[in-house]
Amino acid sequence: MKADLKTTVGDLKGSARIQRMPVNDFFVKNNAPIILFILIIVSSIVSENFLTWRNITTVLLQQVPYFLISMGVMLTIMTGGIDLSVAAVAGCSNVVVAILITKWGQDNVGMLFVCIALTILLGCAIGALNGFFIGKLRMAPFIVTLAMMSVAQGIAYLVSGGAQFRMKNEILSARALTWFAAYRDPLIGMPVLVYVTLAIILVLWFVMRYTPFGRLILAVGSNESAVRLAGINVTKYKFIAYVISGALAAAAGIIVTGRSALGSPLNAVQSDFALSTVAACVIGGVALEGGKGTVPFTVVGVLILALITNVMNLAGLASYPQYVVKGAVIIFAIFLSRLGREDG
């Protein structure tokens, strides 16, 4: 009856809100796009460079790894878990793909695809381990993926010997990768990587919205034991979510390599991928307890964080205070996204 009390009170709040002002409900539901909209206005006031095509396309290009990783992280959070190993997996892939290309890609572009495929496979493998421990052995996602983060960091150091790995320009595959990573379509100057990312996002959006897989990912996060007792293989869906997360993190790492021509184990320990992508999900309304969230809103979450960084850069803020501001803004944004939630 205690739970009853809570739900009734929640219902009351809900109905009272709808009655009093439907507008309020609209704001609560759509706070992420509204925040984004406000940010765009603020940014364009702060800097006249903000609304230039060059800046917009560059921001999007910079955000490609964040978009990819946050899609994977989103899936794991939707199932009621989390993937904190993504930054390390991306960093590890960043190093691994650079080394593979240098070793095999001297004068054969075809080998580039092999290198990329192998690296993504590595990401899948790490994701599969996460998925096995979390889905099959029912271990806590938080600590499993945190430990896996350390494993991936270790791999990055081991394969590189701790040193940065610069891909030489004479290597054909390296040249191809960096060219592709920077290539903009001649028509409107949009980087091709943005198109690729958009395609991946659209596929995921479609899958989440229209297929049994998407429905069940959310269902698992909503009430795992009910779904299990209904006779559904919960383990499978969790496993797949972590594998996809690993794969997308690896893809992000490869893109980092392509954009910098550099494989650095420091990427595995220093990048803000984990914080930023989890924060993007939460800001976009993906509930950390699972069972809630949509692809478009997660994309909005990524954009919000991207704009915050971008506007700080455009305003000429030094990089150290940026960390503080970004962290504070993330906390504030999550606070906003919790407003009006019945359990909030």
Binding site: T7, L218, A219, S222, N223, S225, A226, V227, L229, G291, K292
Partner: peptide, 8 residues
């Protein structure tokens, strides 16, 4: 707890 997905 186990029968339905309340928030679905």
């Amino acid at each position: 707890a186990h029968g339905v997905l309340l928030e679905m």
